[in-house]
Structures are given as structure tokens and as C-alpha cells.
Simulated assay, not measured.
Amino acid sequence: MTTPTEVRHYPFGDPVRLDPHPTAMTLLREEPISRVRLPYGGEAWLVTRYADVRSVLSDPRFSRAATVGREDVPRVRETPAMPNIPTSMDPPELTRLRKLTMTAFTTRRVQELRPRAEEIVEDMLTAMAAAGSPADLVEALALPVPVTVICEMLGVPPRDQHRFRDFSDAIMSTTAVPDEERLAAFAAVAEYLTEQIAERRAHPADDLLGALVVARDNDDRLSEDELITLGLTLLVAGHETTANQIANFVYVLLTAGEWDRLRADPDLVPAAIEELLRYIQLGNGGAFPRIAVEDVELSGTLIRAGEAVFVDLAIANRDETVFPDPDTMDLTRHHNSHLAFGHGFHHCVGAQLARLELQVTLTALLRRFPNLRLAVPADEVEWKTGMLLRGPKALPVVW
């Protein structure tokens, strides 16, 4: 049984573009289960190896619910984990919520959204072309596409969609805004959803939020707080990750010299998306601690009951025992079992929707703007800081 000797501060430092931190990469190779100290709550275990990460994510002895409301749990934010949010729940409560939403995100239902997603993307690209070169790809395309899609699914009218763009950055902040501002943004979205829920009780609607209201009122399967926080989670998580990844994908393809290759062979897009999901470091680490509810031995390391554990999905996606030549972006990589959408109990329920949006957006962008390129040198692209997710603040492009 091994015992790590050094406790490192985590996250390891400010992110540099989309690059994995060198310390994390060293730990993957030399100390895949290590000790770290978080900004709040003390020390924890950090797990970086692919097989160990999958074990933690699928083992009920590692609990997310045990972190709720506890000041002594290691974390990157001042405020402890909040209750009733799917990311802070364990089965069977989590299973109940997932069953209510998964019917809206099956492969068949998501594919039925393809024509509307294609229409949304084409309209935005037409507007971008009309406005002329240069353009900010974040503002013109990467952000509004997933916002529009998830809002339409939930039934949020167009006149209100700007609210989630205004508040979601604050909700996803770690240090970019004070915690009071983050919680105020959370409360503002919750208040809006409370109004929308009341509207659907008075006037039932055939949308996802309406379906959740029916499940709560007729079957008594969702508490009021669960209904509100589930709607909020779907709205924020349903667009933030995809919006950042659209911009990240384009940045990487343009700077790595792979844009022309995809333009010449658009059939590569689905495989390219899976490889970009694996290759790109989206998260900044430290988002979702788990607590061991009993002693667990993980690859020869004893994790005692009550100790906190973090997993690094992006670093696990660089594990050479699973991905040959992992630090090379290979758009033709086969059998790409990456962990970009998580694994186990908390595997992203919207993974198929995200894939659809990424495929539709990238395919259309390659076709409409085959000569796309950055409008500024790559090292002048400004990146978000103090956030759970990485992405450019703006991505100036010309064509």
C-alpha cells in the first residue's frame, strides 16, 4: 500500500489557454493518486489515472451528497455544495431525477432536434456573414447556438433568453466574481423559473419544463426545490459547456493546422469531435469533491472514510495505457472512450445533445466559411479566468 509524500496546492495554477497543467501530467505518470490542498476546506485526494477515475465515478462508496452544506469539505468555492442539485445528489434520489429527464435526451429524440438545430446555426451564420469580417465567433455563434437550443427545449421564450447569458457566467464562477454575486445570480434564475413553473400550472405546455411540472404535480415525484434546481441545472449546464467547446474546437483546429483537413474531408467531423472532446482541457479542476463513506482501497492507496476525493477527467483522458500517443491530437482516432462527459452515476444526461450541437455547428461552419482563420495572433486571444470551465472571452475570426 502506497502513501503519497507531498501535499500540493490545487488547482495547480492559473490555466494557460487549453493546456493541461504540467504538474497534473507528472502526477498521472508518477503519482496517480496524490494529496492536494484546496482553497477552502483543507486536504483531499486527487485521482488522475483513467481506470481509477472510472472507479471513483461509479462506486457508491464515494458520495456527492455527503458534501452538501459542509464547510469542512475541500472545495474551490467559498460556499459549500448546495442541496437538491443533481451534481450534489447520489442514487436513488439522483436516479429518480435522471429518469425524469433522460426521456428528453435519448438518441432518437435528440436526432429529431437536428433540423431545428441546423436552422438555428444557418440563421446565425447568415447574420455573421451579413455583418462582415472580422467577427467574434463567441458572440456570433458559439454562445447563442446552445442557449437557443436548450431554451427552446425547456420552453423559455426568446425575449427571456438573454437572462441566462447574463447570469450563467456568474453561476459558473470560482473566483471571477464574489461568491455573493454568484449566489445572487443563482437566485435570480431560480426566481424566473418559479414564475415559469407557475405559468405552466395555469397553462400547460408541451415542453421539457412543462413535462417536469406534470411529474411534480401529478406524480409527486419532484419537490418544488428539486424542480427549480433541475430546471436551472439543465439551462446552465445545457449551454455553458457546449458554448465553450464550440469556441475551443475552432481555436484548436485553426491553430493546429487541422481546419483545412476537416474542410477537405467533412466526413471526419464526428470522429474529430470525439477526439477534440478527449484532447481539450475544458475544466479547471476542483469542481465536484466526493466523500468516501467507508474505507476504500484504490490501486494500493487507502482512502479512509470521511476523506474527500477529486477526479481529473481531462488528465485521465491523457492516460497512455488507454489512449496511444495521448498528447497528440489524432482526428481519426478509433475506439475513443474518453471521459469528457463523465462516467457512472453523474454521466452527462445531455451528452447526445451536446454532440449534435457540436456536429451541426462545426459542419456548417466548415461549409459556409471554408477560409476561416484567426483575426489576431493566437497568443493574443484572451481567455476566461476564475471559472469552472475554460474558453476564450472572444474569438476574433476573419474569412
Rank of each mutant, 00 (worst) to 15 (best):
P4T: 13
E6Y: 10
P15Q: 05
V16G: 09
V16I: 06
M25R: 13
T26K: 11
L27M: 09
L28I: 12
L28H: 09
I33A: 04
G42V: 11
E43Y: 12
W45S: 06
Y50T: 11
V56A: 14
P60K: 08
S63Y: 13
R64C: 04
R64S: 15
E71Q: 13
R77F: 05
R77T: 15
E78L: 14
E93H: 11
T95A: 12
R96T: 14
L97C: 06
K99R: 15
T107E: 12
R108I: 01
R108E: 14
E112R: 15
R116W: 00
I120Y: 05
G132A: 12
L141P: 07
A142M: 12
V145M: 10
E152I: 08
L154W: 05
V156W: 01
R159V: 14
D160F: 13
F164Q: 02
D169L: 10
I171E: 02
S173M: 04
R182F: 11
L183E: 04
F186P: 05
A187V: 00
A198I: 00
H203Q: 14
D206G: 08
D207S: 10
S223P: 04
E224P: 01
D225C: 10
G238K: 01
N244V: 00
L253C: 07
R261W: 02
P270W: 07
A271Q: 15
Q281T: 15
Q281I: 03
G285T: 08
F288A: 10
V293I: 15
E294G: 03
D295M: 09
V296P: 06
V296Y: 14
A305H: 05
V311N: 03
V311F: 01
D312L: 10
A314S: 14
T321Q: 12
F323D: 07
M329N: 07
T332D: 09
H334E: 14
S337E: 00
T361D: 05
P370H: 09
L372F: 02
D379F: 00
K384F: 01
T385C: 08
L389V: 10
L395Y: 05
V398Q: 11
